[in-house]
């Protein structure tokens, strides 16, 4: 340790959401936060992004919903959730007691659905931002369909922006020809930040049953196995937009998180790793702080996109 006394600044601002540090949790991997409060102090996290919420309750997909892959997993949960009204009545009171920033991920079958959910959550209070999921590969309607074209991504972003005065983050899919083009479209529509990547579409086949393993046939690949793809997506999008990027995809250590930050992410989110080690996010915060000290960097923001030397 070269400078023991250096106390680096970890504060970041993501499109108007001021966070004490750049480490968040990824939607769908952290429940509504309360599930993990038995293992970690949630208030130490920069922000939590809670499970995707829709206008009406969603039953979710048939089982099996997951299958493990080398250093990763495929999931096809299908956005099972109790609906926005239930979330407002049962979880928002808990969110209001938290010191950490709470961001709610939203999905819909139509542009109007997205806007209505955003409006209801905004009126309920207690949350700091909305993450717009236009990248879920596991639902037939909505989800990834909105994120697959620049035009529909623009429209849904604009509709949510009109429905709320909270910061709006748009979560992007890697399952597109050019993620940078979609990022530019949502930036033009007023998005305050982008988060990337959602899962990569994939499947597994049971050779004895001679049919797909997942009940939904296809699923989304996540975990350490997707990290290089995710880092490259952040790298590309950083060159394309000026709004902050939340980087995610296979982060399980501070070293992983730092790769994303150097590629251009101002914040990072821990996803699948929460299942493996519920303390990952806390360990990533501690590891980033140690790195900044040993590299004598006083402010995390100095590191954002620093690898773009070419």
């Amino acid at each position: 340790m070269k400078n023991e006394k250096l106390k680096p600044c970890l504060k970041v601002n993501i499109g108007g959401i001021g966070m004490n540090n750049p480490v968040m949790t990824a939607s769908g991997t952290f429940g509504f936060g309360i599930e993990y409060s038995q293992f970690i102090d949630i208030n130490q996290l920069g922000a939590i992004v809670v499970k995707g919420v829709t206008l009406k309750p969603k039953e979710g997909n048939p089982t099996p919903r997951i299958v493990e892959t080398p250093a990763g997993m495929l999931n096809s949960i299908g956005l099972q959730n109790p609906g926005v009204d239930y979330v407002i009545n049962n979880y928002v009171p808990y969110f209001k007691k938290l010191k950490t920033k709470v961001i709610v991920n939203i999905s819909g079958d139509s542009t109007l659905d997205y806007a209505l959910v955003a409006k209801k959550l905004t009126d309920a209070g207690g949350i700091s931002g909305i993450e717009v999921n236009i990248s879920c590969p596991n639902v037939k309607r909505g989800g990834m369909a909105f994120g697959a074209s620049a035009k529909s991504a623009f429209e849904v972003t604009e509709a949510v922006k009109d429905a709320t005065d909270l910061p709006v983050i748009v979560k992007l899919s890697p399952n597109v020809t050019d993620i940078a083009e979609i990022a530019k479209a949502v930036e033009a529509a007023g998005a305050d930040a982008v988060s990337l990547i959602n899962t990569l579409t994939g499947m597994a086949i049971d050779i004895n049953a001679k049919k797909p393993v997942l009940g939904n046939v296809v699923g989304g690949l996540s975990g350490p196995t997707v990290k290089p793809v995710a880092v490259y997506a952040v790298w590309r999008v950083y060159k394309a937009v000026d709004i902050p990027i939340i980087g995610m995809g296979g982060i399980s250590s501070a070293e992983d998180a730092l790769e994303f930050i150097l590629a251009g992410a101002r914040a990072v989110a821990i996803g699948t790793a929460n299942f493996v080690n519920p303390k990952t996010a806390i360990e990533v915060i501690e590891g980033i702080e140690r790195y900044l000290k040993s590299h004598e960097i006083s402010d995390i923001n100095e590191l954002v996109g620093k690898a773009h030397v070419f």
């Binding site: 991997t29 429940g31 699948t272």
Partner: peptide
Amino acid sequence: EEKMACGIGACLSCVC
């Protein structure tokens, strides 16, 4: 028994 990920009710993988 179902294929399970988090074990604590967060991920909704192991449903029946």
